[in-house]
Design a protein around this nucleic acid. Sequence first.
DNA 1: AAGTGGTCTAGACCACCAA
DNA 2: TGGTGGTCTAGACCACTTA
Lengths: 241, 241
Amino acid sequence: MDPIPDFQPLYKQVYDVLVRRIAEGQWQPGQVLPSEHALAAELHVSQGTVRKALDTLAAENLVQRHQGKGTYVAEHTQEHSLFRFFRLARPNTDGDRITPESTDARCKRRVATAAEAARLHLPKGATVVEIKRVRLVDGKRAVSEKAVVPLKLFPEIDHQDALPNTLYSLYQSVYGVNIVLAKEELSAVLANQSDEKELGIEPGSPVLRIERIALSINGERAELRTSRCDTRHIVYAIDVS
Amino acid sequence: MDPIPDFQPLYKQVYDVLVRRIAEGQWQPGQVLPSEHALAAELHVSQGTVRKALDTLAAENLVQRHQGKGTYVAEHTQEHSLFRFFRLARPNTDGDRITPESTDARCKRRVATAAEAARLHLPKGATVVEIKRVRLVDGKRAVSEKAVVPLKLFPEIDHQDALPNTLYSLYQSVYGVNIVLAKEELSAVLANQSDEKELGIEPGSPVLRIERIALSINGERAELRTSRCDTRHIVYAIDVS
DNA sequence: AAGTGGTCTAGACCACCAA
DNA sequence: TGGTGGTCTAGACCACTTA
């Protein structure tokens, strides 16, 4: 036999099937998957092969495994999602993260700028919703946040009555959009007029600017978020290995 | 039988043995390890168990595996090490990294400041070596870097005649200190006098400050590095999942 | 006690590399 | 051609959870 040209290991094929099912919502976030043996029987592979696929999913935070209980589709709960993508911490604490409070959000529906459309891979003139809010640390304003999302992915999101502290749980629970990866770019800039107003800092102060593209399980570019941080009392902390 | 109180899975014990041997230099960077079967026979476990330990080491970048060839102790070569810990990129390029050139380094032997001693877990009054250099991107000064290392870990490092572009390859090849993890804290600050001189930027310009603690395979705090970046043309890029 | 994930084994075969 | 890592299987037993 000639080798099959686009050969894929069995466990990879199983992995792909499981990802598709989760993406399509066949198993909802928080729900339990069938057991390893059940999946193995259904897909006609051995339990060890299913295991390898599930372990990969767990390593990517798509599922959570609990000995004795089962394998669950990962849920963007408040605390969980917060600590996964929110990387601000107090200095010199070896990465002990902060729980930020957030003020009321302000929504605006408008046409995407050229730059936003490019970053979000949207057609020119697409409608987006802009969600602005300020986050507090220890009761003080520390981060001004602007999230821009395609209206098409999140219809009527600007008419949600209460936006949660972590938008990603809303994306997931209401719109079935599962954020699994964020690409961030950090730079230092000077405070602009909006920063002075939102954060109450002096003109000319340094501001840490974080631009994030959030990617969904389907590879969609679901959100463009720009955070501007007053880093006098907090830092962006990350381990690189 | 009662359960053993501090039970460790076999593969974890194998993993620990292998880490210790690599840390002790029994297998040097770039050298090949014994095959899975050979290790399994020596340690009296199955090949699958060795495999799991080796896969874990590979996931942590401690070894590199090559089908048909063998398993090699990871080496901090120039390009490799550079792209692993150097996270600067051009904006909007989805993380395509930059290869920075570096100017001649200046070394100074001195006593650690209180802050440095605290961050490096050194006793008060310990001697350190400070290594300063400027990195260029596209021929322009972009990053001013200050590395502080304990003299005890790196004797006579200030008398090395040529410091490589990536210090970590020197730490590994000359001193046997293997950097495996870096903890970074980022903040935005204003340019100080030194920045003006080193980077040629205006006073009052925003500067991205990166403070990094580099940890060795033994858990030693091997280096405290402070980088100050002019982020007008480059950004710090990272994926968080 | 039953069911789940976690560990461990032994052995087969495949894909890749070097001599 | 022989040796290496990569895949896959089947089955045993352990540890943990829930009923």
